[in-house]
Each structure stands twice: as C-alpha cells, then as structure tokens.
Amino acid sequence: MARKLKMRIWRGDADTGALQDVTVEANEGEVVLDVIHRVQATQMGDLAVRWNCKAGKCGSCSMEINGKPRLACMTQVASYGDEETITVTPLRAFPVIKDLVTDVSFNYKKAMEIPSYEPPANLKPGEARMQQVDVERSQEFRKCIECFLCQNTCHVVRDHEENKKSFAGPRFFIRIAELDMHPLDILKNRKQKAQEEHGLGMCNITKCCTEVCPEHIRITDNAIIPMKERVVDVKYDPLRWLGTKIRKREGIV
C-alpha cells in the first residue's frame, strides 16, 4: 500500500542551506531512512546521509526528525499521521558537512580525554575475575552504540558552543561511570575528574539524554545522578572536607 509522503529535507553545507520540499512514495512498514534512500535514488542523487546497519545498532543515521533527535532507521513512517509532513534536518549540535551529515569529531576528542580502563599492573592475562553483579551493573552502559543523540540533545552544548570545551556530555558520563564501577580499575579519581575536568556539574538533570537514547540507557538516573551524589557527598560536605584537611582522609574516590 504505497502512498505519497510529503517531506522537507534540509540541504546545504557549513555555509548555507535550506529545507527543500519533496514528495516521495512510502510503502507499508518502511522507516524514514528507506524513504530518504528513495529520494536519493530518484530525485536527489547527491543527497548526503550517513547510514550503515539499518538495524539500530551502528549509530550512523542519527538526525532530527520533526525536531526530535532520532535514528532514521528505527523511525517508522507510519508513526506519523497520513497527512503529516516529515521534516528531516542534520544534528544541530555538530557542524554540518553536507545535507544530513555532520562532523561528530567533538565526541572523539572527548573520548580521548577519558583515561581508559587500567587494571592492576601485576594482573596477568587470564587472571582477571569479576563478580556477575559487577558485570551486570556496568552492562547497561556498554549497550551504548555511540549514535551521539544524547550529546546532540543536551542543552548544555546544543545552543552553547562555548560550553563544549569544558563539557564531555552524557555519552562520556556513562563511560566514566562504567569505568568507575569496574572492580579491577585502579584509577581512583574518576568522579573527581568528571566534576573538575569533564563538566559533570554543568548537567542539571533534565533527562533529555535519557529520553532520546535508542538503547534506553538510563543515563541520568544510573550514571549521572549517582556520580553527582558522590561528588556532593565528599566535595561539599563541610565535615568531610575538614576530614580531608586534618586527618588526611581521601577526597572523592
């Protein structure tokens, strides 16, 4: 049951761009990426769009569909009204390369600023042991597909380019939380660094990141808030602060 679908597709580059109206055939069961591909094949041969797995697991086709950050391959055309126009635009928080493709290298820079997993120096291959409960705690964060929808929607950077320097973003807070929960990781100052170097304090827990996550990771509740609580507990508690000064107690560990 094919039908005519009205779409508005943003086309342009770093300097200039505009929405273009198109009408395209849409078949039953198709997702937005399918119809974008049909537009590409029949009307706009040079329409730039990033995509790969078409199964919601590679995180490539992130874009904004009717203003919402979404994966185009996981968004049913049928979830919009029959007469509704579907508008697709590139991710707003990142610089446009062309059409629906943005330069997401901000995220790779931030990834490199986070020290990787560090096991004890004397741990030999095959000797690492982990309790199932510890595996399960961090498993949620390992589901991240790096689509960067959370990074894109986060208002700390979405319309505040100036904050990018000092803010790593939700994707990297779950990364820090995951490493922090790892029983064999020996770096003891991950939460402190999250606060002091990666801008954890700039997050005011509006949960927009959690809302757009296609893997349904509870970014705010399970990663950001627990880290914030620990930071507040140690950093701002006057008695604990005093303790670090007079009895040489450890700070945020």
Partner: peptide
Amino acid sequence: SVAGGRKFNPGF
C-alpha cells in the same frame, strides 16, 4: 552521469 559536486556525494 552524476549530479552535484565531489563532496560527500553518495551517487558519485
């Protein structure tokens, strides 16, 4: 034949 420029042009 291909429309547009060389930059990120899937048809090309």
